[in-house]
Design a protein around this nucleic acid. Structure first.
Lengths: 335, 335
DNA sequence: GCACACTCAGGGAACGTTCCCTGAGAGCGA
DNA sequence: TCGCTCTCAGGGAACGTTCCCTGAGTGTGC
């Protein structure tokens, strides 16, 4: 077996087919200006030798890579979460990128040291563009990367406006729907579990909660979480301590709502009879809680797909406008 | 602003520093045989021009890319799942690869057509090696890819043995623990919800269930799922139809166990009083079900990390041995 | 029948690195 | 002082493509 022989080159194919490199290149790239006879001979030689064009050489000369980076901010060391958002977004975006013939480079932006690596990576020309996923507001990465001049879009609005186009769902509208739904049920003391306030999604959802309550003359009852189940459980405990008479909770995402449900169960509160709970996102798990979670559906798959489309537009047009997607109230059992 | 000027090249840096390309290259790559004075001048020029080596050119000449592909089999079109396994494995593996200075190329292997693309992608020399994640037994991809001669390892044992080294958890042992635990509680009619039988993990867990029951002279009660929540809920319904007197269920993963819990609740069965439920994997969500899910902990993060290590070993040594990781029974409320 | 356009194949430079090889200069022993 | 080794800088080929440009050959209009 000669299995580990060097892969055949364009040159080898040309020699085998008795034509020039140029012609082989033309056939490979599907250019129309090539005689059928030659095309056939070349195709045969390609098949015979099992030729596949070398990516690095191609990238070098064309100055393009057909690769898009998906850059995800990684939680602090040690913590590996099963965040459904990550799975949905990365998966949907990857699929859409492959549909567009792009390869996907997955980049975790974690420690500060790794940020430099990310910057260098983009500057090295490994990718034609990038998608930033759920950057928090304190993160300097978006600003740094946008300075590379590479086409970049953000999945989720950034704290600093104007750096790059983005796709987000209507956080303010969704949260307003959620709180209104609780008000419609005549809930008196409506608390909220907020996400981390350095993320715009959390800010917007909290602002909407405040605004809506304020309009009815009620006071806000707020606990802080970080979008994880455990933080939701902790925050719920704190809320019960702060105000044992509360009768409704709006959690800024479903994961925290799930955590809150556990705490309420442990505290012996019935949901929704004693305390109504409403989440945000409508992840699949929301269908499987007991009781099933009432929530705001944010179109996560659509958002990922749109983000990819936005980047593709930016890539071809040189410009693209931000997009906001509508949300929808999904009433189940918990509120 | 000249922001969109072509990036500076090695040549430009050399000219700026008044030395040869070779010297700059040596400095960039940290070779020791370069005089301190020259190193300093070069570093200054690099900083001044903001030089970053071109990846494609480097890949071309070194015949290496420092990139590893993570190849994940993608579920049929349309379906975008929030599979916690995907998030955990991809995230943990990516992090470990970055720690090793490797870049990550994420490849979804879906339709048959995309399989060809994957093969071509690997053959094009875009990556130095690959990690296959949870391939099902019917998938021809592992066989095809292993023929490329590229170093490849599998996360999860493959149906066809000997193609490549792998890392898996002790499915048989874990499932045996689960069923024994149910037997220890004097459960009489123990059913199982199996995963898709073209995956070795599902096969092994089912076999262990059968073997263990068989040893006690009981008959198997089996329903088929596909590792999703909804399939678990459906399978549970079918099991209740088949044998209304069953008093225990071993679900081949936690997601299906969560689905089963919902069906049982809808059917008015109390867990664990009427029916005990035990899952497999110990995903984070297992802590948040009502009642909390008893399950078998499989070390998912460790498995991903080990898989990366296995590949790195293969890359340097040219050989590596399969690894099996132990599982652990986690007793909570559901059984 | 001749000029001209038009089609299409081949030659070769260019992409931006790495790395081999040559050779200049320093250091040192005899 | 000469010659030898040893250190380290520079020149240039090579990596495998793409794509521009030249030019051969064929067809077409007047």
């Amino acid at each position: 077996m000669l299995g580990d022989m060097r892969r055949p080159t364009l040159h080898a194919v040309a020699a085998r087919a008795g034509v020039s490199k140029s012609s082989v290149s033309r056939v490979i790239n599907g250019e129309p200006t090539v005689a059928p006879a030659i095309r056939e001979t070349v195709m045969a030689a390609v098949a015979e030798l099992g030729y596949v064009p070398n990516g690095a050489a191609r990238n070098l000369v064309t100055q393009r890579t057909n690769t898009i980076a998906i850059i995800v901010s990684d939680p602090p060391a040690g913590l590996v979460s099963d965040d459904p958002m990550f799975a949905m977004v990365v998966r949907a975006a990857s699929r859409e990128l492959e549909r567009a013939g792009k390869q996907v480079s997955l980049v975790l932006a974690g420690s500060d040291e790794s940020r430099l690596r990310v910057e260098q990576y983009l500057a090295a020309g490994h990718v034609d563009g990038a998608i930033l996923v759920s950057m928090d507001g304190a993160d300097p990465l978006p600003a740094v990367l946008s300075r590379t001049g590479l086409p970049i879009v953000s999945h989720g609005r950034l704290a600093t406006p104007g750096l790059m186009p983005w796709v987000d769902n209507d956080n303010h509208g969704g949260a307003t729907q959620a709180v209104r739904h609780l008000l419609d049920q005549d809930r008196r003391r409506i608390a909220t579990i907020s996400g981390p306030l350095d993320m715009t999604a959390a800010q917007e959802r909290l602002a909407a909660y405040r605004d809506t309550l304020h309009d009815t003359g009620r006071r806000s009852i707020i606990a802080l979480g970080d979008f994880t189940r455990i933080s939701g459980a902790d925050a719920m405990r704190q809320l019960l301590d702060d105000d044992p008479t509360l009768d409704a909770v709006f959690a800024a995402n479903d994961l925290m709502a799930i955590g809150a449900l556990r705490t309420l169960r442990e505290a012996g509160r019935r949901v929704p009879d004693d305390v109504a709970v409403i989440g945000f996102d409508d992840i699949e798990a929301a269908l499987y809680t007991a009781p099933a979670l009432t929530t705001i559906r944010s179109p996560m798959t659509a958002q990922a797909v749109q983000t990819v489309q936005l980047l593709l537009t930016l890539l071809t047009n040189g410009a693209a406008d931000p997009v906001t997607l509508p949300t929808e109230l999904v009433i189940r059992e918990s509120a």
